[in-house]
């Protein structure tokens, strides 16, 4: 995938071009201000529309016996609700709308990114870092507000032998601060990697001899990416639940 910059033989690969942020109106060279309407804006907007279509329009009839769309909406609701309840316990239920927001946004953005020629908003570290650090700060502040200084008990493993505890505390603190980094880079990295691999396989299709293999490869990777999109949304959400549980019940 490096060949773009260095010219790899006759093939030209541009695996990273799909992630370029461009102004939606105007030409490429235009400066991007914070308010500029870009392809990021477009696909974030489509994510919002997808969430509305999935969760609001399908349930507008309020059928007691659900139709297809309403079943999907109820399935999502029940899935995330049960996840929050199972992982964080009863007192985590009041944060359910936040977690549902994260889940629906990531799921819709991931799936929209799989549409050919689209732009994957969740493949950008800036986006996922906001999500990940947002969760991190929210959970940390919540932990201190709910538990006060005893929230620090999270790092003091009282079940371990006493001489080990300072060592474990250092490890726990490091892993605590690595959480938001891994949380956000996992999502962005998975999406970026999958889409780049798709692009590389598509680049192989430029050679007629291996084009059929390349196209079959694209199909296979695409199937895998559909799976990864859903699993990453699930993983992001369940890890948020786990962190939330740590904030609400810091004692091991």
């Amino acid at each position: 995938m490096a060949d773009e910059a260095h010219g790899g033989g006759g093939l030209s690969f541009h695996p990273m071009d799909q992630f370029q942020v461009k102004p939606l109106f105007g030409s490429y060279g235009d400066p991007i201000h914070w308010y500029t309407v870009t392809n990021v804006t477009l696909w974030l907007g489509l994510s919002i529309l997808a969430v509305i279509a999935l969760m609001v329009l399908t349930t507008s009839k309020r059928d007691v016996v659900p139709g297809r769309g309403q079943s999907i909406a109820e399935l999502m609701y029940g899935f995330v609700y049960k996840m929050v309840e199972d992982v964080t316990g009863k007192d985590g239920i009041k944060y359910f709308p936040y977690i549902m927001t994260l889940f629906m946004f990531i799921l819709c953005a991931n799936f929209l990114g799989l549409i050919p020629m689209s732009f994957t908003t969740t493949s950008h570290i800036a986006v996922t870092a906001i999500l990940g650090f947002g969760v991190f700060f929210a959970v940390t502040i919540l932990g201190f507000v709910k538990n006060g200084a005893s929230f620090l008990g999270l790092f003091w493993v009282s079940s371990a032998p006493l001489p080990l505890r300072p060592v474990l505390a250092i490890i726990e603190i490091i892993s605590y601060f690595v959480r938001p980094v891994s949380h956000s880079i996992r999502l962005a990295g998975n999406m970026m990697a999958g889409h780049a691999v798709l692009k590389v396989f598509a680049g192989f299709a430029q050679v007629a001899a291996i084009a059929p293999v390349a196209i079959i490869g694209v199909m296979a990777i695409y199937g895998l990416e559909v799976l990864v999109s859903a699993i990453q949304a699930y993983v992001f959400t369940i890890l948020t639940c786990v962190y939330l549980k740590d904030a609400l019940h810091p004692h091991h």
């Binding site: 942020v21 991007i32 914070w34 990021v40 974030l44 919002i48 946004f105 908003t121 986006v127 999500l131």
Partner: peptide, 12 residues
């Protein structure tokens, strides 16, 4: 491009 993305992300 970060501030642009972050701005629109927060709105979304």
């Amino acid at each position: 491009t970060f501030e642009n993305q972050i701005f629109w992300l927060l709105i979304a």
